[in-house]
Design a protein around this nucleic acid. Structure first.
Length: 546
RNA sequence: GGCCCCGUGGUCAAGAGGUUAAGACACCACCCUUUCACGGUGGUAUCAUGGGUUCGAUUCCCGUCGGGGUCACCA
């Protein structure tokens, strides 16, 4: 069979460059030893998964930690999944969490274009070359035919797929091929595999270590009927031509590694190194089993979730780093103020087994991150969050910057010996500080109405905003004593039956009346921030209703 | 089902042929304290299982079990 003629018939494009042209156009990168070229290659589906960020962080740290390059390639070969504006979503969400690319889509670079759709000619050139060499052939099978074969294979407990005797179009005669072409039958281009599933070999995975791979024997599709390549083919060509040195990707790709290995070999490309990263999982409530975080079932699977909730990007970053590198957490505990970039990220320290997503742990990390912010930084963070996701009311709270800073300084314990860790997320923080901006609707007291009224009236009668903390508390104790509450905790503990309660019960009444909640930072300071007038108004409201 | 990956407390995990099997989160108790938070002290809890190698295996080997992934003209 005249393979050159076949190649021309199958891929008639007259504007293709020979493979050698691309080899020269995209030469190996001049980089210092040890520098890694890594990439992120998401599909523009408009949805960004936590797993995307997870693997992005690993690639980013490896590239930048080694003085290498991180680039963004858009895998838009499936037109059915493509969503308008998805590339913006990818870039903006990754940037929010601190992933910056050196080259790639929308940034450009010497190894572009970085959209696979724009690289169609390149793939076709290599596919044509494979046809000429007899390593690729046209397949005219319809979807129905393939499905029927698969069904039969499954029935007979055979390996499903297009291989060996089941590869009907593999050895079509020249006449049959041209007949089909003349009849305008749609066709795909398949790779002619020479592998044998009985043969296994050891492969070194940068994360998993020594793994065994079974040879591929599938004649996989490399060019779909629309002339666009499949993932497998595009991956091999792109990562070769873009001179990727290390591919860190999800372990769901492990199963197709044999295909990639054979394609690299057939094309005569040197393979990049691979690291297959485990995925973030969660326990399914319905059956108690582990599974990947699901886009459909788990809101926390989406990167949008963390922005809506107002998680600080650094918190998410630190949390993911603790999952990614087992010694990161200890390092971070030791040097809490050092930027993450200073940590020596190592592929060797990446875990082999999938980790369960732990919101408690993330929350704990978040508290620490927020507690290290200055009041000004926290105010900025809150404002940015509120502009995007807060209610109109919450936005209005933040307009008086000076007032806000006073509130934050108190709630964060700025200036105190130890910082408070009340804030977890921006959303939760907004809720925590709400009482500074509006009185609570129906404060719930544990004490009876008469007692509440007496405590509030007595205390407000002597309250003086000019008092310092000690004087303020002295007055509270006097009120407590006058009403039969113990003003001295030790005395109370010695003989609680002699009292109606103690000074903390009295403080609680004032606290609840003013803030609507039983737990707040220092009450005296809260009253100072609210102002005497506002305090009196709130107390009056409570006394009238109780 | 075939193939592949994984298996140390509830979670993330360090670890090495011999350890009292680190640490963090969560949980519990106590202390501090006008409440809460912070902080401090202490505590509960782990090597999936069977066999082999070995003086000794949680660690090395094999089987079993369990969990996960994958078997598209999707990535």
């Amino acid at each position: 069979m005249d393979l050159n003629k076949l190649a021309d018939a199958l891929i008639p494009d007259d504007d293709l460059q020979p493979p050698a042209y691309y080899e020269e156009k995209y030469p190996p990168r001049a980089m210092k030893k040890g520098a890694e070229v890594t990439r992120l290659a998401p599909s523009p589906t408009g949805f960004m998964h936590l797993g995307n960020l997870y693997v992005a962080l690993a690639n980013e740290r490896i590239a930048h930690g080694s003085g290498g390059v991180l680039y963004l390639r858009i895998e838009d070969t499936d037109s059915k999944r493509k969503v308008e504006g998805a590339v913006d979503v990818i870039q903006s969400s990754l940037r929010y969490f601190g992933i910056d690319f050196d080259e790639g889509a929308e940034i450009g670079g010497e190894y572009g274009p970085y959209y696979q759709q724009q690289r169609a000619k390149i793939y076709r050139a290599y596919a044509k070359e494979l046809i000429r060499r007899g390593r690729a052939y046209p397949c005219f099978c319809t979807e129905e035919e393939l499905a029927a074969v698969r069904e039969k294979q499954t029935e007979n407990k055979l390996l499903p797929g297009y291989y060996g005797e089941f590869a009907k179009c593999r050895d079509l005669s020249e006449a049959e091929i041209y007949q089909n072409l003349a009849a305008n039958k749609p066709y795909v281009i398949r790779f002619r595999s020479e592998g044998d599933v009985e043969k296994k070999s050891v492969f070194h995975d940068e994360i998993k270590g020594e793994i065994t791979v079974t040879e591929n024997n599938q004649d996989v599709v490399i060019l779909k009927s629309d002339g666009i390549p499949t993932y497998h083919f595009a991956h091999v060509i792109d990562d070769h031509l873009m001179r990727t040195t290390l591919v860190i990707r999800g372990e769901e790709w492990l199963a197709s590694l044999p295909i990639h290995i054979e394609l690299f070999k057939a094309l005569g490309f040197r393979m990049p190194r691979y690291g297959h990263n485990c995925s973030i999982q969660k326990i399914d409530e319905t059956d108690g089993t582990r599974r990947k975080l699901s886009k459909r079932k788990d809101p926390e699977a989406s990167l949008v979730f963390y922005r809506e909730e107002g998680y600080h990007p650094l918190a998410v970053r630190i949390y993911l780093m603790t999952l990614l590198n087992s010694n990161f957490e200890e390092w971070h505990l030791k040097f809490p103020d050092k930027p993450v970039e200073e940590f020596r990220f190592s592929i060797a320290k990446m875990g082999k087994s999938g980790a369960l997503f732990d919101l408690d742990k993330l929350n704990d990390v978040s508290k620490d991150v927020l507690a290290r912010l200055s009041a000004g930084e926290m105010a900025d963070f809150l404002q940015t969050w509120a502009e995007g996701y807060g209610t109109a009311e919450q936005q209005s709270w933040l307009t008086d910057r000076d007032y806000l800073l006073q509130v934050l300084a108190l709630c964060m314990g700025v200036g105190a010996k130890k910082r408070r860790k009340d804030f977890v997320t921006a959303k939760q923080a907004a809720d925590v500080i709400s009482y500074f901006f509006r009185a609570e609707e129906n404060p719930a007291f544990r004490a009876d109405g008469e007692t509440v009224k007496a405590v509030l009236q007595n205390f407000m009668a002597v309250y003086d905003p000019a008092d310092d903390n000690a004087a303020w508390f002295d007055k509270l104790k006097k009120v407590a004593g006058a009403l039969g509450f113990a003003s001295d905790m030790k005395a109370y503990k010695a003989a609680p039956e002699n009292y109606r309660g103690n000074v903390s019960d009295v403080a609680e009444i004032v606290r609840v009346a003013l803030t609507g909640r039983a737990n707040t930072p220092d009450l005296c300071t809260i009253m100072r921030i609210l102002g005497a007038e506002e305090c009196r108004r709130r107390v009056a409201g409570v006394v009238a209703n109780v």
